[in-house]
């Protein structure tokens, strides 16, 4: 059971779903900026939805919910293992960036509720930090994929 728990997040199905979720989040997240229409990407047949802000907003929220579920699934497995695998350096970097994305993302969701006021400077900082974290995560993920780096070492 300990071994199963520790490797819950390492099944190929989990990895594929995780990667798909991150791609959906990245695309729908960048679609929150007015760039896809300006640069004709939304003109490509089948991609017109990229210029629909409310739709991409909903997709981003759905992706965020899925990501939270996947993270909870993997972390529960990791915490339940008697012999917990240790994060590699690359895994630790990605974990920190992912944690930052989750925290800033959740704060942005809270901000969007009616009657929630956040100081304007905080909102600017939060938006910029969320964007910076996702850019850093993309770089870290590419670096890990090219270098075939693992998230964890097996005990």
């Amino acid at each position: 059971m300990a071994r199963t728990a520790a490797t819950l997040g390492s099944s190929s199905a989990f990895r594929r779903l995780y990667a798909l979720t991150l791609v959906a989040l990245a695309i729908s997240g960048f679609a929150q900026m007015p760039i896809f229409k300006r640069y004709y990407i939304a003109d490509i047949p089948g991609l017109g939805w990229l210029a629909q802000y409310y739709l991409t907003h909903l997709i981003h929220y759905l992706g965020a919910a899925l990501l939270l579920g996947l993270v909870a699934y993997a972390v529960t497995g990791w915490l339940s293992g008697q012999r917990r695998p240790r994060l590699t350096g690359s895994g630790a970097v990605r974990a920190v960036l992912l944690g930052g994305l989750v925290v800033t993302g959740v704060l942005r969701v809270i901000k969007n509720f009616s009657g929630v006021y956040m100081p304007a400077d905080w909102i600017v900082f939060l938006n910029m930090l969320h964007l910076a974290l996702v850019m850093a995560y993309i770089v870290a993920a590419i670096w890990a994929a090219v270098g075939k780096k693992r998230w964890t070492t097996q005990p």
């Binding site: 819950l8 759905l62 579920g69 529960t76």
Partner: peptide, 18 residues
């Protein structure tokens, strides 16, 4: 904002599934 409720349920579902 309704979908935001799914963000509360999703981690619980993840823990339950694990």
């Amino acid at each position: 904002n309704r979908l935001a409720a799914a963000m509360i349920v999703a981690p619980l579902a993840g823990v339950g599934a694990a």
